[in-house]
């Protein structure tokens, strides 16, 4: 699925003492800090799989059409019963949304459930309300197969939902490469990358 990879890689280490990626084994005896505290940024091309997902409204939609509607896209993967990584990721989206202000209508914020069998449209609506998601921010569920296809296409699949790692994807417009941000990005960093992507067009 990944056509081109790693146009550029750099690390943001302003707030974090521990940068980079470590395996679970390597952290076994030194794991009081999560290894993802640093942020890794790459530029990647992805092929969007031809799957149907279901919005929190219950409407079935094609993922390609959702992502290729012309607006810049900012995307993450969440599940509603997650109590650690996902709430932080969603709160970061919420802060990003409020920092954009009225400009938020120009962007499409996309959160795809990695636990689609539990995350019914009704549960996604409750989750979206908790983070005050505006009309530009949609949450998606679907069949397990389709959710898996979406996760795999964007390199977000980690074997199971408990193994997930924080990931944010940004794209300025259809056909352009994606900016892949791994780790806990701050709302300010997210806004910075979003603006830079738009300015580069």
């Amino acid at each position: 699925m990944v056509r081109g990879f790693s146009v550029s890689v750099w690390l943001l280490a302003s707030t974090a003492p521990f940068v980079g990626v470590a395996t679970a084994d390597a952290t076994r005896d030194a794991a009081s800090a999560m290894p993802q505290d640093g942020v890794t940024i790459t530029t990647v091309n992805y092929t969007i799989p031809p799957v149907h997902l279901v919005r929190e409204t219950g409407q079935s939609v094609l993922l390609t059409q959702e992502l290729d509607d012309g607006r810049p896209v900012i995307m993450n993967f969440i599940f509603t019963t997650c109590e650690t990584t996902c709430p932080l990721s969603s709160q970061t989206f919420a802060q990003f949304q409020s920092r954009l202000g009225p400009e938020d209508r120009r962007v499409h914020m996309v959160s795809i459930s990695i636990d689609p069998e539990h995350d019914t449209p009704q549960r996604l609506r409750a989750y979206a309300n908790k983070f005050h998601a505006g009309p530009q921010w949609q949450h998606y569920t679907g069949t397990l197969r389709d959710s898996l296809a979406a996760q795999q296409a964007f390199g977000a699949y980690r074997g199971d939902k408990m193994g997930h790692t924080p990931l944010t994807l940004l794209r300025a417009a259809p056909g352009e490469p994606w900016t892949r941000i791994e780790g806990f990005v701050t709302p300010d960093q997210l806004l910075h990358h979003y603006r830079r992507l738009l300015a580069a067009r």
Binding site: A24, A31, M34, P35, T84, T85
Partner: peptide, 23 residues
């Protein structure tokens, strides 16, 4: 959402999370 139990769990024994651990 701010409660300690979310990450450190009811037992207080933490959890494996992603590629790291909640201690």
């Amino acid at each position: 959402s701010a409660a300690c139990v979310n990450c450190h769990r009811r037992s207080g024994l933490g959890a494996a999370e992603g590629r790291g651990f909640i201690p």
